[in-house]
Design a protein around this nucleic acid. Structure first.
Lengths: 222, 222
DNA sequence: TTGCTATTTATCCAATTGTATAATTATGTG
DNA sequence: CACATAATTATACAATTGGATAAATAGCAA
């Protein structure tokens, strides 16, 4: 254990820095985030962050790697589920939608960071698209096309629009949670509100959930 | 005209500053936006902006006033339209959805600014909600409730969720236009893509548009 | 022309920023 | 114990920031 205590502390510090960086980047965007602000979230000196990550930008890349790895672990569709959906098993698709809504509620910073970086073409956006978004979008696109061909989704127009309609429908209320609270006194982050939102999304895109198969997510892992 | 040349220039300068400020705030968020950056967009000294607006924050408030006034002019529902929708005229609702999609495409900075300010409760968000969002949301809420009672919208759950599902579905692809371009080579801002998105949104929330009434927006004003 | 006022620029300043380097502390090994 | 190395803090610095004030320019009325 002797040789481990130091490295374990170091690893924990690295993880804490990443988590704090994610929150800071989501809260203020890349430009307005400060290394000192991130450091103060976990009560370390700002020099320590420079010790682990050589620049503010490299910290951003590391934080995004962490973000998408977590997304992958929590909501990525398995090959079997995908095949089932392609064969018309809409309950699997409902479960996937539900798990994605849960993810959006737990991690609203994800949508926020992507929207902030999508303001204009830039190297950070280019990186995250190339490393993570592109493959996921292409997979989703072919899945949606298959579902529309099967008649499981009825809509007219490009499937690209549909991808953003579905993800926007899932994300938006959590990205704007503070607005919903101020304007309507609605706390979108209570378990009931999250569950309600998942039900609503599912009913919009898949019709009402079937009575005899109570929606239980098999993909919820945290 | 003599007395007018000066004031007209001043008014135009004020308007140019507001427009540049909107773009800057949407591009970088409030914190990362700089008065000098806004000034350089319209090639004036940063001191001039301080002359017209006494602080960066007061400039933000003025820019948001401008933003929401433009929204009101372009997509606010008339009383007559509202009554027609409440009586079940879904074509009017389809037109309204369409005009909102057009607005989101023309002014993606609107959604961006709201999301950026919704990171956490703060005075800027509080102001814009109190001045603009709250009343609009309450109106929309009661309209949606009425439509659901009429059976014109079929979904299960809180109507608050539905508000954010609809607006998210309309906005998202434009807020993430750069991502869609990088990942799928899809330019969401072409007239065809915008039209397609409007069709898709309408078909998701209202079913396919009626064949005999080609969708023509009566509310599109710019 | 001479004033007068509004518009605009030019500087100045203290605070904050990312980055860099030195100093300090803790930990494990001999 | 001493010594080496990793973890962490402290400090320094040039650049940028919002804000403030002074200076300059332009338009107009007399």
């Amino acid at each position: 254990m002797a040789a481990n205590t130091k490295t374990r502390d170091a690893e924990r510090t690295r993880a804490e820095i990443l988590q704090a960086a994610l929150e800071e980047f989501a809260a203020h965007g890349f430009g307005a985030s400060t290394i000192r602000g991130i450091a103060s979230r976990i009560d370390v000196s700002h020099g320590l962050i420079r010790h682990y990550y050589k620049s503010k930008e490299s910290l951003w890349f590391a934080a995004v790697d962490f973000l998408f790895e977590r997304l992958r672990q929590q909501v990525q569709m398995t090959y079997e589920d995908r095949k089932a959906i392609e064969k018309g098993d809409m309950d699997i698709f409902r479960d996937w939608l539900r798990s994605y809504v849960y993810y959006c509620a737990r991690h609203p910073e994800h949508a926020r960071i992507m929207i902030q970086e999508s303001v204009s073409p830039n190297d950070r956006l280019k990186y995250v698209v190339r490393e993570y978004v592109q493959q996921a979008h292409e997979d989703t696109l072919s899945l949606i096309d298959r579902m529309r061909a099967n008649g499981d989704i009825v809509a007219t127009g490009s499937s690209v629009s549909l991808i953003y309609i579905i993800t926007g429908a899932c994300q938006n209320i959590f990205a704007l949670a503070a607005e919903a609270d101020y304007s309507l006194g609605y706390d979108a982050l209570t378990p009931e509100a999250i569950e309600n939102h998942a039900e609503m999304v599912i009913s919009v895109f898949c019709g009402a959930p079937m009575k005899d198969s109570p929606p239980v997510s098999t993909r919820e892992k945290t």
